[in-house]
Each structure stands twice: as C-alpha cells, then as structure tokens.
C-alpha cells in the first residue's frame, strides 16, 4: 500500500489535526483524503478530495464487502484522479450529490444508511457514469492481487507445483 501511505510523512496526530471530517468514514485536508482512523491517506492531484472521498464510498456501495478495507477501494478508483478523467468524475459525483439532495440529504456522503444510498444509485444505475465506475471496479477491485487472500483465492499455483500435493482433493466434510 505504498501509494496510500500518509502523505508528506505526517504523523497520525498531525494528519488528523489538519483535516475535517467528511461523512462517517473519511477526513479530508488540503489536497488529500484519509480514512477516519488515519490508517491510510492519499493525495489527490486532479480531483477535489471531497469528490474522491465520495467516489470511494460509491465504489463500496456498488460492491460492498465488509471484510475489504477502504484502502482497496481507493486503489480501485485512484486511476480516475487524472487531468483527463477528472472533469467527468466531478460531473458524475455532482449529479450523485444532487440526487442525494433531491432525497433530502446534504450530500451522498451525508446519506447515512446504505439502503438510502442504494436507493439513490438505483435511480442512476443506467447512467454512463454509474456504468463507467461499476465496470471499472470489476477489474479495479477484484483483480487486485492484494484482495485475493481476503476471499481465500490463492492465485497463481504453477510456481508451487500446482495442487497435486497441496490439497486439490482435501475436502473433508462430504
């Protein structure tokens, strides 16, 4: 997770002192976003930190895995933090916030219950923006080798001699 370590060598205390809370899970500072417990942080270069925080929450709401930490969702969407991609993402997140406001919430991130955020997403699931984010996550999230062990998937096996001596038929509960 070297790319999502605390920026500029901030200590956890310093980092938290420079941020404001955003929604339930994130804090943002000038040009960076961090988890609420400061376990990870990332600088943004093209996206507003608030936009990136919303994007991470959106990613989790599309493919929610309670056992997968935010840092993996951050990796899955950080490719959108580029000059080329940013305008489309800012517009998409603005539309998402507008939809949240239309349902009486201050913003998407301030919509506290997942079921309410999912209602917002159901209303826009056919949009190009939603499909862009969802489609990108299929590989962006699930093709991260660091994620695989969380699901028990073992990945490449040839270099270990396959499973012929490593449990290809070890099921014991049938």
């Amino acid at each position: 997770m070297s790319k999502t370590q605390s920026p500029r060598g901030l200590t956890r205390r310093e980092l938290l002192s420079q941020t404001t809370a955003l929604g339930a899970s994130f804090v943002v500072g000038a040009g960076f976003i961090a988890s609420g417990d400061a376990a990870w942080a990332m600088e943004t270069t093209s996206l507003k930190p608030e936009t990136f925080a919303t994007l991470v929450q959106l990613a989790r709401d599309i493919y929610p895995h309670d056992k997968v930490g935010d840092e993996y969702y951050v990796v899955a969407v950080k490719g959108y933090d580029t000059a080329d991609a940013a305008p489309g993402i800012e517009a998409g997140i603005a539309a998402l916030n507008a939809a949240a406001q239309g349902m009486g919430n201050a913003s998407y991130l301030d919509t506290a219950w997942e079921r309410d955020r999912v209602d917002i997403l159901r209303g826009m699931e056919n949009s190009a923006f939603f499909q862009q984010i969802r489609g990108g996550l299929v590989t962006g999230l699930y093709n991260q080798k660091a994620v695989w062990p969380i699901f028990g998937y073992e990945g490449s096996s040839f270099e270990f001699g396959g499973y012929i001596d490593r449990g290809f038929n070890d099921i014991n509960w049938l």
């Binding site: 599309i62 895995h65 699931e125 699901f151």
Partner: peptide, 13 residues
C-alpha cells in the same frame, strides 16, 4: 451490483 451480488463473492472459498 450490491449486496445480493457481493454476498455471493464473499463465499467464494
């Protein structure tokens, strides 16, 4: 997308 889908993948193993 959503939990109907991801709860299946949670049981991948």
């Amino acid at each position: 997308w959503g939990r109907e889908f991801t709860s299946a993948l949670d049981e991948y193993e």
